[in-house]
Nucleic acid binder design. Sequence first.
DNA 1: AAGAATTTTTGCGTGACACGCAAAAACGGG
DNA 2: CCCGTTTTTGCGTGTCACGCAAAAATTCTT
Lengths: 209, 209
Amino acid sequence: MGTEDGERVGLRERKKQETRIALSWAAIRLAVERGLENVRVEDIAAEVGVSPRTFNNYFSSKGEAIAARHLDRARWIAAELRAQPASKPLWEAITDAALARFALGQEGDGKHTPDQQWVAGLRLMLAEPALQGEFFKAGAIAEAELAAAVAERTGTDVTHDLYPRLVAGAVGAAIAVVMEQWMRADPPVPIMALLSDALRQLAAGLPVP
Amino acid sequence: MGTEDGERVGLRERKKQETRIALSWAAIRLAVERGLENVRVEDIAAEVGVSPRTFNNYFSSKGEAIAARHLDRARWIAAELRAQPASKPLWEAITDAALARFALGQEGDGKHTPDQQWVAGLRLMLAEPALQGEFFKAGAIAEAELAAAVAERTGTDVTHDLYPRLVAGAVGAAIAVVMEQWMRADPPVPIMALLSDALRQLAAGLPVP
DNA sequence: AAGAATTTTTGCGTGACACGCAAAAACGGG
DNA sequence: CCCGTTTTTGCGTGTCACGCAAAAATTCTT
């Protein structure tokens, strides 16, 4: 066991992550192009230049592969919260953390969003019933990590106290609602505005408007 | 078409609902007893006295069958909210509606809970990764109905306003957290207490305790 | 009440999938 | 440059979801 914990990225791990991500993106791209039903596992594997059997070494289903990108992205929110200065009040920190993760796709100029692919994937996951389960499951995993981060920050206990998971759940729900709303806003509205608005309402106790 | 809208329950629909529910319960019971992996669709169908093919006329997967009971139960919360007097403030109405739906399994006497089966199913759905997706999906459907009820009551618009879905999402998350906490509370704690506490915290803006 | 018209159930066939297992290939370290 | 470990791959198997059309059941019509 040569290196300690600090440098855990063996050149091998790196490679694995790369194919993992490549498989995930390939799955999304193909599903968006031809529709989920017209994509076989075989196609995804071929796209990445890997055997069909190998696909199942990374993901146990098409849906999991597609949701993987969403999961990774959602995980980062918890990490971002931990990175916030401890002095910042909780809700402010949460808002900043969430906003930091969504600083994308909001410029209206000619610049084509690089995450257009991700948005398409999101739209797909919300539309296809076969994917919705995986989508929510990913959200739940991210919420668990967020709950841990909240517990850390507030000095509460994830297993005994309701509070951290309550916060994580509410925030997760808010993000989900915001993303959905943002995707079908006909006169496009900046996602940051929606998000900070939603979180503000949450922290205000969701009073009847 | 003889009867109006009032009596829409044809004797036929009734029968369908019955087999649907029977299939669902059978799926839960078998999965709880032997573990999900050791239950084939064939077994569930046999249990109800119906052909395997018919099972798939009702549910498109084992998971969906198991989650069906949860879905039905969750749906009732929206209905219960609509039944609350319009004069009651929103959060009070929501709390009462939710509590009404969970007035079960909380007596500590020798009486064996009739919903023990349901609790076992719930535990199963949270434990088995293959079921979690369906579980959350059911929650999302119920949340959508709850959002509609909230919109009705508050005079907001489900499609344009963030508010009703925000409330529904937060309440859904709270219920999920409460159920999870309740199921693994070692000194059993009444679910009603947990639930009203969680909702109170929500309505208070989730201040750091 | 008997036949007609729906609706539901069923059987069969098909395409796809997830996964266990063991051989083969790739890779990293000494 | 060879050895041990990890990863990839091929193959076989059991399960599953679903389309389709015949058969059975149930409701409606007159």
